[in-house]
Nucleic acid binder design. Structure first.
Length: 812
RNA sequence: GCCGGGAUGGCGGAAUUGGUAGACGCAAGGGACUUAAAAUCCCUCGAAGCGUUGCUUCGUGCCGGUUCGAUCCCGGCUCCCGGCACCA
């Protein structure tokens, strides 16, 4: 009978061991330094895991195990982002309560994660849809409310008729809903908003100190979109005494004011009616009707600029000349003041509009020689601009801003693209808002001891259709008498978006069973910040910006001790299908981890996912490739054990290791240590393969050397390592063994191969002793037989020696 | 259009304070063992050429530059991926 490495047998038993021994339960405190390793928790979908999930989870698991072996107290939790649309859509279709679906899916996800041997502290598991959890989500909302950071506003929102809900700007892509790709229209509705804009500058500034990928920081910077400029007042001709005397615009180019030849109002601008003259009223109304009928998508794909003259004029404060006021939908109400001064000479959009409607164009920045474009937006000396002439853009901006401020015509102004966060959804499966709208028109926010406000049972999960969610249909829940004020009251029928629960789950993990507070401040001080946070790029702006915002609010309230939650962030790439395309059911290229584990075991899957390529890159799956990894584990096993007898091989001996064995061992320790620290798991595994290849050749395998290797492999293939460790006679888990140290003296070679180049081409190699001096090496290089052939009849004009690397001879 | 990132054998990928390009794995080919196959082990494996145990030339998307020497630095392109997109 063949007794070879059998993951199907050893893996479940070690998982059982870790579970019953509470191996990975984290202590809150103690003498060791702490290390908090966090995965972006999953939405437990009905499809279960696909191989993409374990990629990131394996990476963090390796780090967690590596840190434990390096003496850290590691917090490595897992939980569920369990509110959300798919379970609700399933409920609409089948009538199954989302709670039921979610519970079932969580069980399946957890089973699959368990099978991968991750070292999570499952005692800290949380689910955002659990009342014990969302109680505190609601509580944090009340804190935001009390800070004036939550408000109800009537505003144009992204209404998605197909989904029956409004969406945040972040959830709309190309005018379509990110989920499902449905049409989205702008519609004014009363909605709860969170004032994330109040934190725009800090969200921008604090990116600086974070160890995050630069491109993620850039995405956030662009999203926040700070721009420096000025607000300028334009006097309306004939506006004296009315409520629209001065029209205020925002511009980033105050230096071009002399070139402002017309103005544009957004169609939604409140002054449109007041500024429209009787002659123009018909045309304007027709235009407004047309603009209102456009969906977001229409508006974005429209190639030609449209607009209409409103009949009124404003005075350009720099030139004193009247300029016409137009209405056009290329100006957005949501940014700046919803009105602009148009400077066609220096703005491509304005140029296009001016050309189409035959409006004057004045260049106020000199164009460079040979300029063939239209609007010129780059730097250059000012012209046609009176006191600004000759100045560069930066100087002219400053000068003009000062000039405006002096005369009371405007002021310096910073604008952000970031908008307030639309925080309500017309959905059932989310956190109810902890508030009562009282008969006297006031709002009473619920206190901590009244929470959680439990999500009521409902008969139908469909949105009410009126723009209200399903909760609106349960009058016995909606309507009540407020026990505090005694007034009649109604609840809020909206629920919070899925992002709410994920905004603070990393905080709940540090104290998950606390029923007196969301977390204990002492524990928070101990565990935070998160030392390593790993997840997909898709959350670069949404989740990561929202969570940073909440964290800063909590910081200002003294509830957390750091101003940023996630010190170091890394993104894992996607695992693509074998055909190089994104994995999806419809493409039929989905790989199920259950199958892979059944064939080759979790350790092979873990190793292979890491071996595929750099963590952050997208990589295609390869069914043959995992067989190669399996072979590696088989061979590593056979370094120790006889497949026939299951006994330790006679080659494995308790002997003093020789120089060769020590060299390969320490080289491997050195490489695996640094590469694991740098999350370069693919190359760490390569080095372990090299070790196994070399040791397989060795007639004698010193036991001490092999044992060190088992430790190196332990974070990567934990079941394999536990089993081998135990069979080598150790009683304890390998999880807390001390990580091996590379000894420098085994990393240096006595004899070094040095390359000899002649005129930049490699011509020979010479062996030198490690301590050979420059002159000796050069002499040996010049004397080498093959080199001599290339030196024949030539004169050496330059000799370069890179110590230990190469000799370069330049000849003529 | 703007902002990122990327391009290396048949494939996934190694190698950067500028120093032997192709580690490691997959695939492929050959051999050993076997009645046979699987498994295992050994060998070959960027391209072309030649006087073929070896040597030469070319070769890291394209074109140039710096350098004794460039996958790496600089300038100019092409293509692919991601993000943003009338944000004044």
């Amino acid at each position: 009978m063949i007794m070879a490495y059998d993951p199907g047998k050893i893996e479940p038993s070690w998982q059982e061991y870790w579970r019953t021994q509470n191996t990975f339960v984290a202590e809150d405190g103690g003498g060791k330094p702490k290390y908090y390793v966090l995965d972006m928790f999953p939405y437990p979908s009905g499809n279960g895991l696909h191989v993409g999930h374990p990629e990131g989870y394996t990476a963090t698991d390796i780090v967690s195990r590596f840190k434990r072996m390096n003496g850290f107290n590691v917090l490595h939790p897992m939980g569920w982002d369990s509110f959300g649309l798919p379970a609700e859509n399933h409920a609409i279709k089948t009538g199954t309560h989302p709670r039921e679906t979610t519970t079932k899916n969580i069980a399946n996800f957890k089973r699959q994660l368990m099978m991968l041997g991750f070292s999570y502290d499952w005692d800290r598991e949380v689910a955002t849809s659990d009342p014990d959890y969302y109680r505190w989500t609601q509580w944090i909302f009340t804190q935001l409310y009390k800070q004036g950071l939550a408000y109800e506003g009537e505003m144009a929102v992204n209404w998605c008729p197909a989904l029956g809900t409004v969406l945040a700007n972040e959830e709309v892509k190309d005018g379509l809903s990110e989920i499902g790709g449905h049409e989205v229209v702008r519609k004014p509705m009363k909605q709860w908003m969170l004032k994330i804009t109040a934190y725009a500058q800090r969200l921008l500034d604090d990116l600086e100190g974070l160890d995050w990928p630069e491109y993620i920081k850039d995405l956030q910077r662009n999203w926040i979109g700070r721009s420096d400029g000025a607000e300028v007042d334009f006097t309306i001709q004939g506006g004296e005494g009315t409520d629209h005397e001065k029209l205020r615009v925002f511009t980033t180019r105050p230096d071009t004011l002399f070139g402002a030849t017309y103005m544009v109002l957004s169609p939604e601008h409140p002054w449109v009616g007041g500024l429209t003259t009787d002659e123009q009223r018909g045309a304007v109304e027709a235009y407004l009707a047309e603009a209102a009928g456009k969906s977001e998508r229409d508006r974005q794909i429209a190639k030609e600029k449209t607009g209409v003259f409103c009949g009124s004029f404003a005075i350009n404060p720099a030139t004193g000349k009247p300029i016409p006021i137009w209405i056009a939908d290329y100006v957005m109400m949501g940014y700046g003041t919803g009105a602009i001064m148009a400077v066609p000479g220096q703005d491509e959009r304005d140029w296009e509009f001016a050309e189409k409607f035959d409006l004057p164009i004045i260049r106020t920045v000199q164009i460079p020689d040979g300029w063939e474009g239209k609007a010129y937006t780059d730097d250059g000396p000012a012209m046609n601009s009176d006191f600004l002439d000759g100045m560069g853009v930066a100087e002219a901006k400053a000068k003009m801003t000062a000039w405006l401020v002096d005369r009371g015509l405007g002021e310096h102004k910073i604008n952000f693209k970031l908008r307030d966060w639309l925080f309500s959804r017309q959905r059932y499966w989310g956190e109810p808002f902890p508030m009562l709208k009282l008969a006297d028109g006031t709002v009473r926010i619920m206190e901590a001891d009244e929470l959680p406000l439990i999500l009521p049972e409902v008969e139908k999960y469909e949105p009410a259709g009126t723009g209200e969610g399903p909760l609106a249909t349960i009058s016995e829940w909606m309507e009540l008498t407020d026990p505090v004020s005694g007034q009649a009251a109604v609840r809020e029928s909206n629920t919070m978006p899925q992002w709410a629960g994920s905004c603070w789950y990393y905080l709940r993990y540090i104290d998950p069973r606390n029923d007196k507070a969301a977390w204990d401040p002492e524990k928070e001080k101990y565990w935070l910040p998160v030392d390593l946070y790993l997840g997909g790029t898709e959350h670069a702006v949404l989740h990561l910006l929202y969570a940073r915002f909440w964290h800063k609010v909590l910081f200002d309230l003294g509830l957390v001790s750091t101003c940023e939650p996630f010190k170091k962030l890394r993104n894992q790439g996607m695992i693509l299908g074998e055909n190089g395309e994104k994995m999806s059911k419809s493409r039929g290229n989905v790989v199920n981890p259950d199958d892979v584990i059944a064939d080759h075991g979790a350790d092979s899957l873990r190793l292979f996912l890491m071996f595929l390529g750099p963590l952050e890159r997208d990589k295609p799956w390869n069914a043959k490739g995992i067989e190669g990894i399996r072979r590696f584990l088989d061979r590593a096993w056979r370094l120790f054990f006889d497949d026939e007898t299951d006994e330790l091989l006679p080659q494995v001996k308790n002997v003093e290791p020789d120089e060769t064995a020590l060299k390969i061992l320490h080289k491997t320790i050195d490489a695996v240590t640094t590469m694991t620290e740098e999350l370069r798991f693919n190359t760490a595994i390569s080095q372990m393969m090299v070790f196994v290849n070399e040791m397989s050749q060795a007639a004698v395998r010193p036991r001490s050397v092999l044992e060190q290797f088992v430790l190196l492999l332990a974070p990567y293939a934990p079941h394999w390592s536990e089993e081998v460790w135990r069979r080598l006679g150790h009683q304890d888990t390998v999880a807390f063994e001390t990580w091996p140290t590379a000894e420098a003296r085994y990393l240096v070679e006595d004899m070094i191969t040095v390359v000899v180049q002649v005129n930049g081409k490699v011509r020979d190699q010479i062996e030198i002793s490690a301590d050979a001096q420059k002159d000796a090496v050069l002499a040996q290089a010049v004397g080498a037989e093959k080199v001599q052939q290339w030196l024949k009849g030539k004169e050496i004009v330059k000799q370069i020696y890179v110590p230990g690397k190469l000799v370069s001879l330049v000849v003529r």
